[in-house]
Amino acid sequence: MTASTAPARHATLGTPPGPFTVVVATGSDGQDVVLASGWTADVGELLPLVHPTLRPTAVERVEDLPLLDVVEKFVAGDVAAIDDVPVQQRSGPFLTEAWQVLRTVPAGHPDTYAAFAARCGRPAAVRAAANACARNAAALFVPCHRVLGSDGGLGGFRWGTPVKRWLLDHEAAHAPVAA
């Protein structure tokens, strides 16, 4: 099933760094799957991020999207609440794998781009790792904000460095202590 033929829905929730919008489709198992998300109230900013084979032809605004409960839990301090949310993104083999690997970067313990490239099994592919972060359509659920510049600086973030700083500080304050 491609999401382009399935109905999609979107909803926006206020969060401390700003409005957060999620675009979901119904997966083959009947559960919601995130196609795109980010800190904007304009769904039009999110749809171009969805791969053309997954991009919905229509998106309905809904007031009550169960997935927003997960975002509320994250904001309330349960930084692991986002870990098991189904996400669907599509690209070449490296980007697809890198997005899966991003989900293994622990909250409160960010990687550098070089460490992320090594985590992906390609330590020399630092630029490709950075590109995976930049092309991630499912912000928060695929936590590209957990990757920093090699100098420890914030680097870039599609939704702005103030949002990235808030996310990193929030996760550092609420993440479990590493064993």
Rank of each mutant, 00 (worst) to 15 (best):
residue 107 A to T: 09
residue 117 A to C: 04
residue 149 G to P: 08
residue 90 R to P: 01
residue 150 S to T: 14
residue 128 A to C: 01
residue 109 H to K: 10
residue 145 H to A: 05
residue 117 A to V: 03
residue 114 A to G: 13
residue 124 A to G: 09
residue 91 S to F: 04
residue 104 T to P: 11
residue 88 Q to F: 05
residue 106 P to D: 10
residue 145 H to P: 11
residue 94 F to G: 04
residue 94 F to T: 06
residue 143 P to L: 00
residue 113 Y to E: 12
residue 103 R to C: 06
residue 153 G to K: 03
residue 119 R to T: 02
residue 95 L to D: 11
residue 110 P to F: 00
residue 95 L to E: 09
residue 93 P to S: 11
residue 151 D to Q: 07
residue 103 R to P: 13
residue 89 Q to L: 05
residue 133 C to H: 04
residue 92 G to S: 06
residue 136 N to D: 14
residue 127 R to F: 04
residue 117 A to G: 10
residue 106 P to V: 02
residue 151 D to N: 15
residue 142 V to A: 10
residue 96 T to Y: 06
residue 93 P to Q: 04
residue 157 F to D: 11
residue 103 R to V: 03
residue 139 A to H: 12
residue 129 A to Q: 06
residue 108 G to M: 03
residue 153 G to N: 10
residue 154 L to F: 15
residue 143 P to S: 05
residue 114 A to V: 05
residue 123 P to Q: 07
residue 154 L to S: 11
residue 93 P to D: 09
residue 110 P to Y: 01
residue 148 L to Q: 13
residue 131 N to C: 00
residue 114 A to W: 13
residue 146 R to W: 03
residue 115 A to K: 13
residue 116 F to T: 10
residue 120 C to W: 14
residue 130 A to C: 00
residue 128 A to K: 06
residue 155 G to M: 03
residue 158 R to E: 06
residue 143 P to M: 00
residue 110 P to H: 01
residue 140 L to Q: 14
residue 120 C to Y: 12
residue 108 G to E: 05
residue 124 A to E: 14
residue 127 R to N: 10
residue 104 T to I: 01
residue 131 N to E: 06
residue 142 V to R: 12
residue 101 V to A: 15
residue 90 R to M: 11
residue 122 R to K: 15
residue 107 A to S: 14
residue 91 S to D: 14
residue 119 R to A: 09
residue 153 G to R: 04
residue 151 D to V: 07
residue 121 G to I: 05
residue 102 L to A: 07
residue 109 H to Q: 13
residue 113 Y to N: 04
residue 153 G to F: 01
residue 96 T to D: 11
residue 93 P to T: 05
residue 120 C to K: 13
residue 121 G to V: 04
residue 103 R to Q: 14
residue 107 A to M: 02
residue 108 G to H: 07
residue 146 R to N: 11
residue 117 A to N: 09
residue 156 G to S: 15
residue 114 A to F: 06
residue 89 Q to T: 15
residue 107 A to I: 03
residue 125 A to V: 00
residue 144 C to I: 00
residue 152 G to W: 07
residue 133 C to N: 11
residue 103 R to Y: 04
residue 124 A to I: 00
residue 113 Y to L: 03
residue 119 R to Q: 09
residue 143 P to Q: 02
residue 141 F to G: 13
residue 128 A to Q: 12
residue 157 F to L: 09
residue 112 T to N: 08
residue 156 G to E: 08
residue 110 P to E: 01
residue 146 R to A: 01
residue 149 G to R: 09
residue 155 G to Y: 02
residue 109 H to I: 00
residue 94 F to M: 07
residue 93 P to N: 05
residue 94 F to R: 13
residue 150 S to C: 06
residue 119 R to H: 14
residue 111 D to T: 02
residue 148 L to D: 11
residue 141 F to K: 12
residue 112 T to V: 03
residue 158 R to A: 09
residue 143 P to G: 05
residue 153 G to I: 01
residue 138 A to E: 10
residue 108 G to N: 09
residue 123 P to I: 00
residue 134 A to M: 01
residue 110 P to W: 01
residue 115 A to G: 15
residue 152 G to T: 08
residue 133 C to G: 14
residue 92 G to Q: 08
